[in-house]
């Protein structure tokens, strides 16, 4: 069973006086269990709209999305998911420990588990000494670490991250990379959208490139190595020409053979 399956997904936004904007246009892909998949695209490509539809925040106009075989309309589909949005300013009047406690309760965890997980995770994300200070005193990067901890709280089988590294400093990014790798080693599937191509190249098993709401390429990182100078050059060529450069080469090779 795939961790994520999206089929012919369409998401539109109404625009006054003109036709609706098709943010996600007939998009289909799947993510296998245990993979780290980078979801790449320029601003406005449809990455966040896809993730919103996947998490049930944005109703799809047509098509379907499921998580571990369960349609995303069902609240239970999110029972095995940890989600981290790009920026979330957690309640300024709660402490990181209280924020995590609340999320643990909402997830349905029992008190003992919550207590243990909160302690462990605050240690893991480097906020153990800030556990009892109010969120309003924390920096953006620290709040992002609170977010990472809340995403990992219920030991999810799937992590969905929406451009999370944007608020982190270089050390924070390194820690996040290590954390994602550790999660993958534990069998967790990671699906994340990002602008950081170098980062995607370093940690992903596979990349999906979306442009104007459509999937324009899906490649394993191994396929790219040695065939393109970098993920960035592959991405730029793909977006500028609208054609997967490796597909062109593959076709030429096949024609020669």
């Amino acid at each position: 069973m795939d961790a994520i399956r999206i089929e012919k997904l369409v998401v539109t936004y109404p625009r006054p006086g003109t036709s609706p904007l098709r943010a996600v246009d007939n998009l289909s892909f799947d993510v296998a269990q245990g993979e780290i998949v980078g979801f790449l695209g320029v601003n406005g490509a449809g990455k966040t709209s896809t993730i919103k539809a996947l998490m049930g925040f944005q109703p799809a106009n047509s098509g379907s999305a499921s998580i571990f075989g369960e349609p995303v309309d069902a609240a239970t589909s999110r029972g095995q998911v940890g989600f981290l949005p790009e920026t979330a300013l957690y309640s300024p009047f709660l402490t990181p420990a209280e924020t995590l406690w609340m999320h643990g309760e909402l997830h349905g965890l029992d008190r003992t588990t919550i207590r243990e997980r909160v302690q462990d995770l605050l240690q893991t994300v480097g906020l153990a000494d800030k556990a009892r200070v109010q969120n309003r005193t924390l920096s953006k990067g620290m709040l992002q670490r609170v977010g990472i901890a809340q995403a990992l709280l219920a030991r999810p089988r799937l992590l969905v991250l929406d451009e999370v590294s944007s608020g982190l400093d270089p050390l924070g990014r390194r820690d996040l990379r290590n954390l994602l790798r550790a999660q993958r080693d534990d069998g967790v599937t990671v699906f994340f959208s990002s602008h950081q191509l170098t980062e995607a190249e370093t940690i992903c098993d596979r990349i999906l490139v979306i442009h104007q709401g459509r999937l324009v390429a899906g490649r394993r990182i191994e396929e790219l190595r040695g065939r393109v100078p970098s993920l960035e050059s592959f991405f730029v060529t793909l977006i500028e020409t609208g054609v997967d450069p490796l597909a062109v080469v593959d076709r030429q090779v096949q024609a020669l053979v």
């Binding site: 998490m55 940890g82 920026t87 979330a88 309640s91 909402l106 809340q150």
Partner: peptide
């Protein structure tokens, strides 16, 4: 505050 996303990402309706 965009905290609605992590809240709705929990298994609650």
């Amino acid at each position: 505050r965009r905290t609605i996303y992590p809240l709705l990402a929990r298994p609650i309706t």
